[in-house]
C-alpha cells in the first residue's frame, strides 16, 4: 500500500498540493479526478519522485518512499506519463527495452516483450518503426506496454485517455481493468471523470491542490456536489 500523508508541494510561491492525504491499497484501482491544474499530475509526480515535497511524507508498506525517480521504479512503482512521452527517434522495440532498463536478465526482457505484444499486437507489427511514427492511440499503448516491461506492482496512469478517439478510450479503460484483475494496483488520474469513477474502487476529488471529497468510486460518481463541480469544469 502507498500512503500520502499531509503532502504539500510548492512551485516557487504557488502551492500545487496542499496537505493531501491519499491511500492506495494493494490490488485496487484508485482514481484522482479534478480539473486542469487541480494538482493531479503533481500528485503522481510526487509519488514518482519527480517533484519534491515541501511537507508531508509518502510511505510504501509503512516505509518512507523519498527516493530519486529511478529508484522508485526499482520499488515496482511505474508512472505512465501524461502525453505518453514516447521516445520518438528510437524504435518501438527500443522503447520497450528501455522500459525494462532495471531488468538485467535478457531472457526475462524477451519474455516481457512477448507478453506486451500479446496485449497489444499492433506494437509487434510496428516494433522496428521509430516511436514518433505511431498514431496517438498506438503511442498510448506503447506507453502502457513500456511501463509494464519492468514487471511493476503499481501503475500510476496520468491521463491515459487524453486525446484519444472514443472507441480507443473504451479500449484503454478495459485494458486498465484487465491489468488490475491480473493483480496490478492502479492509481488513475483523469479528466474523463465519469469513466474513471466507473472502474475505480475508491476516488479522490482534487480542487486547486486540496482534496474536496473522497469515497468509493460509485458514490463519488453520484455525489451531487461533485457533479456540480464537474459541470463547472465542463464549462471551462
Amino acid at each position: 500500500m502507498i500512503e500520502l500523508i499531509g503532502c504539500t508541494v510548492r512551485y516557487g510561491g504557488i502551492t500545487a498540493l496542499d496537505n493531501v492525504s491519499i491511500k492506495i491499497p494493494d490490488g485496487k484501482i484508485v482514481s484522482i479526478v479534478g480539473a486542469n491544474g487541480a494538482g493531479k499530475t503533481t500528485t503522481i509526480n510526487v509519488i514518482s519522485g519527480m517533484v519534491k515535497l515541501a511537507k508531508g511524507s509518502i510511505l510504501m508498506d509503512g516505509e518512507s518512499l523519498t527516493l530519486p525517480p529511478h529508484r522508485i521504479v526499482k520499488k515496482g512503482i511505474v508512472q505512465i506519463p501524461e502525453g505518453r512521452k514516447i521516445f520518438p527517434t528510437i524504435t518501438v522495440a527500443e522503447n520497450l527495452i528501455l522500459g525494462a532498463f532495471i531488468i538485467k536478465d535478457r531472457e526475462r526482457i524477451k519474455a516481457n516483450m512477448e507478453r506486451v505484444f500479446k496485449l497489444f499486437p499492433i506494437l509487434k507489427e510496428r516494433m522496428n518503426q521509430p516511436g514518433g511514427t505511431l498514431s496517438g492511440g498506438e503511442q498510448q499503448m506503447l506507453a502502457i506496454a513500456r511501463g509494464l516491461m519492468s514487471d511493476p506492482k503499481i501503475l500510476l496512469l496520468d491521463e491515459p485517455s487524453l486525446g484519444l478517439a472514443p472507441n480507443l478510450v473504451l479500449e484503454i479503460f478495459d485494458m486498465i481493468k484487465q491489468l488490475n484483475r491480473e493483480g496490478l494496483t492502479i492509481l488513475l488520474v483523469e479528466q474523463n471523470a465519469q469513466k474513471a469513477l466507473n472502474i475505480s474502487d475508491y476516488a479522490y476529488v482534487l480542487e486547486t491542490g486540496r482534496i474536496v471529497s473522497h469515497g468509493e468510486g460509485s458514490k463519488i460518481a453520484g455525489d451531487p456536489v461533485v457533479k456540480k463541480a464537474y459541470l463547472g469544469i465542463k464549462e471551462v
Partner: peptide
Amino acid sequence: TKIGIAIRAASSDIRTPSLMGVNV
C-alpha cells in the same frame, strides 16, 4: 546496448528516462 538506447532516448527527452528506472 541498453545504455546506448538510454543515451539516444535522453537525446530527445532527458527527463522521462528516469521514469523507466534510468539514472539520468
